[in-house]
Design a protein around this nucleic acid. Structure first.
Lengths: 205, 205
DNA sequence: AAAAAAGATTGAATGAATTCATTTTTTAAG
DNA sequence: CTTAAAAAATGAATTCATTCAATCTTTTTT
């Protein structure tokens, strides 16, 4: 039932995504012109705008692919976490952070974050926000799991605590993306220190 | 010793700031064209660029004025805080949030945040980041004060805890700016719930 | 007070994202 | 198989932020 039209559409969409990913990597987001992306994807500029609302959308599409991978990696850790609050948090957050610079540069992250904030109604911004929510849920799920394992006290509001850990790690990642000099190790160390009080206090005793 | 040149410069700078503030309020950031700002300030487009590096800079200048006021209001609360952790936090954070929409719309906040992230090296972005740091410090100072008053346990890492509260409230404010439907009360209620576990656990007993 | 130097202003030109009226291709109907 | 309707593609035109060489104003020097 896949008519010619549907097939061509999927094909063009993939060509655009590939072309954009290559160009962003090669010359950075700002210097990649729509005209160049279109040329490489063998379509016209106008057609680009039939597939994506604006230049930012195509970057967020790229980022989305990346975050999906992190979520998958995180699931493995949540399913079988280290049996201490700090240990589990460091493992999961370390996974997020280590993965983050694999495909994307700090500059690309900054641009993606900026767009997600600035145009919250665009489809890919919604998708980006949705991914954030799933990351946040994953942290809450980890706390729940630790509760089930007797590592975290039973009277703790796992959702509230999870949200606080997540907002903290997310804000710190933004900080990291802003400072070209800050290393992944700096980032992890600072977040670890920030997490420690809450992590210690929610431990079952 | 204020030569003619210095006076004219200060005068033009003020006219640009005023013109921009009016236009941003009237038509929003995106629709306010540099040409219009220049016209209202009775200067040329080129002159605008002698005073500000780019369009974003002038918005961040506007935001800076606003945040300075919040910091001042916050100082009053820190100097004489309610004598419970939740009470003190709610008071200070409530002050921040209530003030936030006085001069700036959600759209303006979103744009300012986006620019601060995207161009971290621009002068006003640095100033914006600096203001964030001072807000963060203010929260840490509050926790320290509560320690001194015997409200918070002595073995608590006030700085780490303060940073976590701040990162949480800041991230939630970003969320708030992104969702046109979210009210100030929703925001405060959600942050309050997130703060409760940590606030309760650090209380002296 | 005239001339030179330094500092600022100006707006037309540039360059890139985005729009939109036209044209082309595909699908559906008779 | 033709023809009408729907969907997509196209690229020239538009819009705006930003730049820069030319010009003007203020300050300093002689």
């Amino acid at each position: 039932m896949t008519g010619l039209r549907a097939r061509q559409k999927a094909d063009r969409n993939r060509r655009i995504l590939d072309a954009a990913a290559v160009l962003f990597r090669e010359v950075g987001y700002d210097s990649a012109r729509i005209e160049d992306i279109a040329e490489r994807a063998e379509i016209s500029v106008g057609t680009f705008y039939n597939y994506y609302e604006n230049k930012g959308d195509i970057l967020l599409a790229t980022v989305s692919m990346e975050v999906e991978e992190v979520l998958t990696a995180g699931r493995t850790i949540v399913d079988n976490p280290p049996l201490s609050v700090m240990g589990a948090l460091d493992a999961l957050i370390g996974e997020y952070y280590d993965h983050s610079l694999f495909y994307l540069s700090k500059e690309m992250w900054r641009t993606a974050m900026a767009i997600a904030i600035q145009q919250p109604e665009s489809p890919f911004s919604k998708r980006y926000t949705e991914l954030d929510r799933r990351l946040c849920d994953q942290i809450s799920t980890l706390i729940l799991k630790l509760k089930a394992k007797g590592v975290v006290a039973l009277d703790i509001d796992a959702e509230a605590v999870g949200e606080m850990f997540f907002n903290n790690l997310n804000m710190m990642f933004t900080e990291f993306a802003k400072r070209e000099t800050m290393s992944l190790d700096d980032l992890k160390a600072r977040v670890s220190r920030q997490n420690r009080p809450l992590a210690t206090l929610i431990a079952a005793r």
